[in-house]
């Protein structure tokens, strides 16, 4: 476990010192093409909103450091979601991010006897490294490919244990491939995720009988209407370790770059059944600022 974080920290430091040696090293220069840094996902890593992409956050290129911050709210049938976080991009190679998730159980909290409006909270620490390829340039059939790790710490361990989770912390591993197919103005992204998170980790990880990680898939397909405007759809499969009928996630989103630095994303999301309360659909709104 700690090996991964040491590796991520070392990679970040190495990439940073390599970039810092460039004659024209730049902090927050904003050299990326607009929208090619993606938007912040609910876990903090850059992507399309729900699904992670192979993109690196921040608007820096190989000679710089970039940064982004975001805030997201999701209004569901029975629940309210709020999350926010920051990401640092180093040399368009390494992404380090943190996100805090707050999940308001509202009336369901009373029904589950944990208290009306009880909030489940979680911290997510992530690192992503671009292995090869470029989102826009190079061979049109070679995507940008990145690996990521997301360490999640659920701050409501007793509730996670109550619903039958095996642990209050877990680590996801992701492998993503993303490409903008200019000839069709289409962006496609696919990610495989090794995870045992229940509802993203808000209901803990695994189950009492020690269920291990499973391979899940997340994909996005988006159409570029203009330099600044993208419409898309996403799908994300999830395990059902707790036997509560956890379902896959789906969304239809629109992302608009108001300026080169500010992106707003709106979506219709269908998060299925959450803690036996079915049909959790609603609106997703997110704002990101990036340099």
């Amino acid at each position: 476990m700690t090996v991964i974080w040491k590796t991520a920290a070392t990679l970040g430091a190495l990439t940073f010192s390599a970039a810092a040696q460039a004659e024209d090293f730049a902090w927050f220069e904003g050299d990326k093409l607009v929208l090619t840094n993606g938007v912040s996902t609910i876990e903090g890593a850059s992507g399309g909103g729900l699904a992670s992409w192979a993109t690196i956050a921040g608007r820096e290129l190989e000679n710089g450091v970039g940064i982004s911050g975001h805030a997201t709210i999701v209004e569901l049938s029975d629940y309210g979601w709020q999350s926010h976080g920051v990401s640092v991009g180093i040399a368009n190679r390494v992404e380090l991010s943190y996100a805090r998730q707050n999940f308001d159980t509202r009336d369901v909290g009373a029904a589950l006897r944990i208290g009306k409006g009880y909030k489940l909270n979680q911290d997510v620490y992530s690192a992503k490294v671009r292995l090869f390829g470029d989102l826009v340039y190079g061979d049109p059939l070679v995507p940008q490919v990145s690996v990521g790790v997301q360490h999640k710490r659920n701050l409501d361990g007793p509730i996670a244990a109550l619903v039958g989770a095996g642990s209050d912390e877990g680590t996801d591993y992701t492998l993503s491939a993303t490409k903008l197919f200019l000839s069709h103005s289409v962006l496609a992204s696919a990610t495989v995720r090794l995870t045992n998170a229940n509802q993203n980790g808000l209901l803990g990880f695994g189950n009492a009988s020690g269920k291990g990680k499973s391979v899940e898939f997340e994909g996005s397909l988006a159409y570029q209407l203009s330099r600044r405007f993208v419409l898309g759809a996403e799908y994300r499969t999830k395990p059902d370790n707790l036997g509560l009928g956890e379902e896959d996630w789906f969304d239809l989103f629109a992302a608009y770059a108001v300026t080169d630095n500010v992106t707003v994303t709106g979506a219709y999301v269908d998060l299925g059944s959450i803690a036996t309360f079915e049909n959790q659909r609603g609106t997703f709104l997110s704002a990101q600022i990036a340099f």
């Binding site: 826009v136 190079g138 061979d139 049109p140 200019l182 103005s185 209407l225």
Partner: peptide, 17 residues
């Protein structure tokens, strides 16, 4: 039109290397 712009770019982008 934007889609036509992207089609020209799709021929230029692979020259990057």
């Amino acid at each position: 039109a934007f889609a036509a712009q992207n089609r020209l770019l799709s021929k230029l982008a692979p020259m990057s290397y």
